[in-house]
């Protein structure tokens, strides 16, 4: 039985939910974005990545979901910044679940973030290797 209820949030969740430093969108020639999830399913996110010289210079997100989901999206965007394109696939939803003490019942929402990141990586790869 889980000892974390729906309305118990770890301090880092509270901090990231209240201060969404990466909330917003990006535009420009070096920017890709990808969305996953849906409002109907209760969680949806779009991730923007600005990549310069194969490295993420800036990341931003928009998110619809519970505080755990918003905090995880904020954490993902922060994590992406400074990573190379190759390193992006190392993001682990399990680590985020542990770090933010996200209840097991909400694991599906972290997979939505993983999907958004994967789609963004695919777009980045196809953009930078148009012939492949």
């Amino acid at each position: 039985m889980e000892n974390v209820t729906q309305f118990d949030y770890a301090p880092e969740v509270v901090q990231r939910f209240v201060n969404t430093l990466h909330a917003g969108s990006l535009d420009g020639v070096n920017v890709v974005n990808a969305q996953a999830g849906s409002r109907e399913s209760g969680a949806s996110a779009r991730l923007w990545l600005q990549v310069v010289n194969q490295r993420v210079k800036k990341a931003a997100f928009q998110g619809y979901g519970c505080p755990h989901f918003i905090a995880a999206a904020e954490s993902l965007a922060e994590w992406c910044e400074g990573r190379t394109v190759n390193e992006l696939s190392l993001w682990s939803w399990q680590k985020v679940q542990q770090q933010l003490a996200i209840p097991t019942s909400k694991r599906g929402r972290l997979l939505i973030l993983e999907n958004a990141l994967k789609k963004a990586i695919e777009t980045l790869i196809s953009t930078h290797n148009p012939s492949s």
């Binding site: 969404t20 969305q35 409002r39 949806s44 996110a45 997100f61 928009q62 998110g63």
Partner: peptide, 8 residues
């Protein structure tokens, strides 16, 4: 609403 504006 502002942090979910573009989402479907």
């Amino acid at each position: 609403r502002s942090i979910s504006a573009s989402l479907l």
